[in-house]
Amino acid sequence: MANPMRIRATTTNGVTEVKALMSHPMETGLRKDSAGVAVPAHYIQQVQAKHNDKVVLAAEWGPAVSQNPFLQFRFNGGAAGDKVSIQWTDSTGDSRTDEIVLA
């Protein structure tokens, strides 16, 4: 289980803006370490964001997304007490879900 992600969300005029910073090495599998041994690929492949139970963004990523990925998007709606959750699944099958409650 990887480190928690940081999620921030603010609602203005009925539109909620979500910013997420995930903690992940995002290894491409092409890099070599100091001993010259290739570092195996390890990167996030799927990201899904939900507002309560409704999917608001679904992404498929390759290894070219930067280390500790940042993601920002907006969806319509969102009221105080609503839940926003983000889940990722990486190439080793590991996954993590983090959730925040809108203020």
């Binding site: 539109v15 409704k54 963004l57 992404a59 990523w61 070219a64 997304v65 998007f73």
Partner: peptide, 25 residues
């Protein structure tokens, strides 16, 4: 010019702004 040019694909359901911000290599 990346080894595999496709970095990411985002799917937008109804009700989500068709805008996204992220960081790539």
């Amino acid at each position: 010019m990346n080894p595999n040019p496709l970095a990411a694909v985002f799917n937008f359901p109804e009700g989500t702004d068709t805008a996204v911000q992220t960081r790539v290599k």
